[in-house]
Design a protein around this nucleic acid. Structure first.
Lengths: 98, 98
DNA sequence: CAAACTGGTTACTTCTGTGTAACTATCCCT
DNA sequence: AGGGATAGTTACACAGAAGTAACCAGTTTG
């Protein structure tokens, strides 16, 4: 669990992953996840890449194009994240007011 | 997802939760999770309590005894955490060296 | 030739979370 | 009366995570 947190612990990582249901360009990610600064977005993507969760593909075009997608390993995470989301939205009434 | 992270985001929360498979006294938690300082342990437990995940029961004894356990809502998280753990230990060989 | 687009990087600052250490209250035991 | 046990709290310090702003490189477009 401690190690798992190391891999997924970044404040934004699960959010990034759950948005990568399909391949996205860097600009798309930056736009959609505009709460995340470009710097941090780059950092987190790099770490996710290192951990084998995200695949980065750069196309030698002009202007440059870079696409991020989930690896198979990363994709295996999606159903779990959905459960987490479902769990959270099923909060008991006593605490739902958040 | 962002909100879910707000609830579970603390560096230690998932670890605490996954150790609360049964009721535990504060001292037990502090001992077993000795990487966590007592201060932070208290804080995280309080937050988990506020979010309806953990139940705190103090007994009016001397010396004082306080037991922490998961609420039903919190217990619903356990199977998901197990999946997360399983996912992580199923890392592909290329990145398993961590 | 200059401007714009994309996907960054770099230097610097700020802030949040976490850690350390010392202190408290109450009761029991000797 | 003194010391130990439990479950904290408080004040303070610090590190690392995150934010901001400016800059870069290559190519196409005007």
């Amino acid at each position: 669990m401690t190690r798992t947190m190391g891999v997924l612990g970044g404040k934004w990582k699960l959010i990034i992953i759950s948005y990568l249901t399909q391949p996205r360009r860097f600009g798309q990610l930056a736009q959609r996840l505009s709460l995340i600064s470009r710097k941090v977005l780059t950092e987190q993507l790099r770490e996710l890449e290192e951990d084998g969760i995200v695949h980065r593909e750069a196309f030698a075009e002009a202007p440059p194009r870079v696409e991020y997608s989930l690896t198979e390993y990363g994709r295996a995470l999606l159903p779990i994240l959905e459960q987490l989301s479902a769990w959270h939205s099923a909060a008991p009434a006593a605490v739902a007011g958040q």
